[in-house]
Design a protein around this nucleic acid. Structure first.
Lengths: 206, 206
DNA sequence: TAGATTGTTAATCGATTAACAATC
DNA sequence: TAGATTGTTAATCGATTAACAATC
């Protein structure tokens, strides 16, 4: 699709554009401009045009972008024009909250399995899902060709769990444990740690 | 403290350094080098030295950085050498999970109040905390001089709640709602949306 | 047609890396 | 002393912005 390699920093902005476009679409709006979209997401119009133009000519001079069309293109580009099965490892409070979150399905993801190693939890239900034993995880992930996992275990076992996930074929980890993971190239990690996010802001507070 | 304005991208890496240093410290390690720290967090040694040197000369040639000392300096710089009171707005699953998370206190934050507008929830307890009515939020935030909030309400009411928080004096918002917030300059926002994080990775999956 | 807005180029700005003297 | 590693400079690399011809 794209001859040149697109910088990761641009890839990181696409989901934000998509999210904003979907909100506009929900409100019945059919068209937008780089100017308008930029004001919504807090990014310059020039940058938005440049980002989008990496992938094709999706706009029209004079009128801007057709929202449903641009949404489809972005979903294609990001590979979310299908539903990805994801698993959750660690059924503490955070794992439970994610398992019950209903914002995944409408945006391309489905929580298909959840795991824990606590005998008290194994076999319990979280919504529709039964909590499986981590001991059976490698096998189940391979069987179901799972590529994406969310990691919500304590920091002390996060690296070990990540290693297991990777051995089982996982290529993308959303890590909620407050620790930097060591992973081989070819495996992607995104970090969600509320404390680092908060600390990034307190620098600016007196 | 620092004459030159430090780029925000550097500020964003400091919490990651701090987190790694604290893990080393827990393991009883007293000293580290830019090389070693870089391998842990996945950042080049040169960049780590450059980032740290923005704020002073905290290392020693030949031996590296004294971990407890560097931790103290970073905590000073980031303003987390004291405990910040934070509030949570929206007591759904995510709000509950955050309210019960015990990783805040040891890293400079304390959840001091939680709010919801559901009569069923108001007055209930979450751990030690009573859920307060959002109607009383402005008043309570002003009384307690709250500067930081975590926003875990549905996307549809997130902007409205953010506006209220800002009116009440909040200067930093950690936004869990899947929507870009519009805020005046002087107010900081950090975004946590598992779906955008996942979408950022699916681009690279086949 | 007149007005609006794209896609793209060139210029600017900023961030990262490589290299090394200083020094513990 | 010899080896290790910092702090910093200069070079490189990459990202953002400004500007505008093209065109709807």
């Amino acid at each position: 699709m794209n001859a040149e390699k697109v910088p990761d920093i641009i890839i990181g902005r696409l989901p934000v554009y998509l999210r904003a476009l979907q909100r506009l679409s929900e409100r019945g709006i059919q068209t937008t401009s780089s100017q308008e979209l930029g004001e919504i997401v807090g990014i310059s119009a020039a940058q938005i045009r440049k980002d989008i133009s990496q992938f094709g000519e999706f706009g029209k001079q004079g009128t801007g972008y057709a929202i449903p069309f641009l949404i489809e293109r972005l979903r294609d580009i990001m590979n979310v024009n299908k539903v990805w099965d994801v698993v959750i490892v660690g059924m503490g409070d955070m794992g439970h909250a994610l398992a019950r979150y209903n914002g995944f399905s409408e945006r391309g993801f489905r929580v298909s399995m959840v795991f824990d190693n606590d005998p008290q939890k194994i076999g319990q239900k979280v919504g529709e899902l039964e909590i499986y034993d981590i001991a059976s995880m490698t096998e189940k992930l391979k069987q179901n060709k799972i590529r994406i996992a969310m990691l919500t275990v304590p920091a002390t076992s996060a690296q070990e769990m990540a290693d297991q996930l990777i051995k089982a074929g996982v290529k993308a980890i959303l890590n909620y444990a407050p620790i930097s993971l060591n992973v081989p190239s070819g495996v992607r990690v995104q970090y969600i740690d509320p404390v680092t996010h908060l600390q990034r802001m307190t620098y600016y507070l007196d």
